[in-house]
Simulated scan of single mutants.
Amino acid sequence: MSLDDCAEALREHDPDRFGICLLAPAEARPRLLTLYALNLELARAPLASTEPLIAEMRLQWWIERLEDIGAGKVQSHELLTPLAEAWGPRAAGFPVLAEARRRDAAREPLDGPEAVAAYVRDTAVPLARFAAEAMGWEAAGGFAPPDPRGVFGKRRKPDVAEVVDAQAEGVGLAHWLAALPALQGLGLGLWDASPEVLAGIAGKARAKLAEARAQRRFVPRRLAPVLFAGAGVRAALRAAPRGIEALAGAAPSEFRRRLALGAFALTHRWWI
């Protein structure tokens, strides 16, 4: 899989992130394309078999290959080769993206809003941090652990990582809701998919998005593409309290996706 193959896979199966890659600076694209293509493969891996043991073995294979890249072992693989070229030893951190998918191998539904939020924090948030690194944030200081108090006890300004995390969790929750009709059929949705539970998940998403929006002035402009929410977030959050049937009809059209991407390209407004 060359970079062009990564782009084609994203264009077909993850169009929002494909659009993000198009808007990223040229020097960041190899890292973003391979990162998002890896995320796509890891999301698919536990769904390749209905047998939990086989599904987990597929994930374990990816974990071991990523560890090999981190150790400097040469890879001969359509995705892992360009990934190693783009990320080098930093790919040693990527197994966290695969570990978060282990529960998918068991095909067990989640138990309410808190469980969904925890799942999204384990999957979407690390991905967003790696994407921010791809945009050059690591070189500018990276994600240092936040200091809870400023000088002389004054309230500190938010760490960029907190804003990235909040936006990633809010967007991730909305995307999870949008995917719920399909997830239910795979056994990866909710034990209780009542409108009340869906409204609770949407409420958590709105709170995180509001948290990120309130702190947007602390985020460097160069990170805007990887914080862009895409076209479907508002529709999913509006539909959720009406139930799973409403979510099934809330997917944005290709026209709306392109319109949202075009508007973002002009304004760099990632917050909603």
Rank of each mutant, 00 (worst) to 15 (best):
A124N: 01
R269T: 07
Q184T: 05
A182Y: 12
V164W: 07
R107P: 09
V120I: 14
V226P: 06
A45W: 06
L59D: 06
G230F: 03
D4W: 02
G230H: 04
L209Y: 12
P195R: 03
V125T: 11
G187Y: 12
R256Q: 10
A132W: 01
P158R: 01
F143R: 00
G189T: 08
V120T: 05
R257A: 11
A139L: 02
A239F: 12
P145T: 10
A124M: 02
A106N: 04
A7G: 00
A251G: 09
A144M: 13
H268T: 10
R238I: 04
H268A: 13
E169H: 02
P145R: 04
R216C: 09
P148H: 11
S2N: 10
G170D: 09
P126K: 07
A43N: 08
D68T: 02
A210M: 11
A166G: 03
R221F: 06
W62S: 03
L33R: 03
Q60G: 03
P181D: 11
W137H: 15
I63K: 03
R129C: 01
D122M: 06
E114D: 15
E78I: 00
R221H: 09
A118T: 14
W176T: 08
D192E: 15
L198Y: 13
G150Q: 10
P220Q: 11
N39L: 00
F18Y: 15
E108G: 07
A260C: 01
R17K: 12
D14C: 00
R222L: 09
L97K: 09
E27P: 02
Q167M: 13
A84D: 06
V219D: 11
A161W: 05
R31D: 07
E196W: 00
A48M: 04
E85V: 04
G187I: 07
L259W: 13
E245T: 09
R258S: 03
L38R: 03
A214I: 04
D122A: 15
A193I: 00
A178L: 13
A7T: 00
A26V: 14
P113D: 05
A43H: 07
V163Y: 03
L190C: 08
P82I: 11
D192H: 11
